[in-house]
Design a protein around this nucleic acid. Structure first.
Lengths: 197, 197
DNA sequence: GTAGTCACTTACCAAATGGTAGAGACCGTA
DNA sequence: TACGGTCTCTACCATTTGGTAAGTGACTAC
């Protein structure tokens, strides 16, 4: 892997965990085993590195979710598939969701730049839900806020780890599976037209 | 209001919105109309200011929620009361929830210091839910993760405003009410023993 | 063999940051 | 009037930050 690629990878983790402002070029360079100037050589400026990190992460994240979205039938099973994909992403590449949250943050200077990459995926999701509701496959509900709540719960599991710890839980596979069940129950209650029981 | 109090108030907003690292003493002082040294005089160091902000905010937040928790009967109505109180807090003092999330963040240096203030409130909530489940007032479910999901949804509304914007929503009263309904439906589905309908 | 490019270095620099030292203004008390 | 305490200021300081300039070695094309 080239230094440039490694730099993006290392910076992703730093930016996601501590935030962009609190992650210095020197710190990133040290982890790479090169000098700060080498990082600047590859990206021109810190802003250049930040853009590269966000662009690459957004690309990877959409690719991952996009590939999951085409895999199963419309209706409840495909929702399960998407949620499962999101949670396995949360465990395997937590920094992707961490960065998503960093950019979703109030007043983030990169939000417009990055979120427009996600716009198609978001629109697709909302459309999918709304059409499902029109067709009677899903119960009528507030699709945007159902999506937002799901987003919040999933990103929280990688970002709000201290809150999890305060509940006596750590971020591991078992907890992730339990939260996945909770989220799926929420979605089932919000979307399932029959009352199962 | 004294300069010290105003400093805490101004710093709260900065820390909640941009993060502690990205909010400088000079910036805070400028908003107060004093010099940086005046701020340092009152708190000794930036770390001192940070501690004061977190301590004061944690105190205000617990007080607010504590007072709501004693107001209504055990069971479903009291959950409604708590959720309503949280949402009105989100609209009226968003920085309190923003700071809570800042401290819940992975690897936050202040988490232990602050979250232990919340520990009694958290324990009380979990206990409340578990007892309700034992008594059959609530459906048996994963109380900790139900609480965590609710926390995630509520804090997201003040912190992930860019994500809300990407959904075509802004943070206003109407959206907050809609999200509150969504959260309450989730809780009702997770906790209500009878299947209403 | 030499010109050129790529990846990286050392040597600096200006600005911003948190922090210290000391002095002046105000205020109640003796 | 003098005194101690509180609050704020000006004047510095050391460190860290992102960034520039210039150079070195390796590898390639002609």
């Amino acid at each position: 892997m080239t230094t440039k690629h490694r730099a993006i990878s290392v910076a992703s983790v730093g930016f996601a965990n501590k935030g962009v402002a609190a992650t210095s070029l020197e710190e990133i360079a040290r982890q790479l085993g090169v000098t700060k100037q080498t990082v600047l050589y590859h990206f021109g400026s810190k802003e250049g590195l930040v853009s590269a990190v966000f662009a690459e992460s957004a690309r990877a994240l959409t690719a991952e979710l996009q590939s999951a979205s085409g895999q199963s039938e419309p209706g409840w099973p495909s929702i399960q598939t998407m949620v499962r994909a999101s949670f396995s992403l949360a465990l395997q590449r937590p920094e992707l969701l961490g960065l998503l949250r960093e950019v979703s943050r109030m007043g983030s200077p990169w939000s417009s730049e990055v979120l427009e990459i996600f716009q198609p995926l978001i629109d697709e999701a909302i459309n999918y839900l709304d059409k499902g509701m029109d067709a009677g496959v899903f119960k009528r509900s507030d699709s945007k806020l159902v999506l937002f709540t799901t987003y919040a719960a999933i990103t929280a599991v990688v970002s709000d780890t201290e809150a999890l710890r305060a509940l006596g839980l750590g971020l591991d596979t078992r907890v992730a599976v339990r939260l996945r069940s909770t989220v799926l129950s929420f979605l089932e209650a919000a979307l399932s037209p029959e009352t199962p029981e």
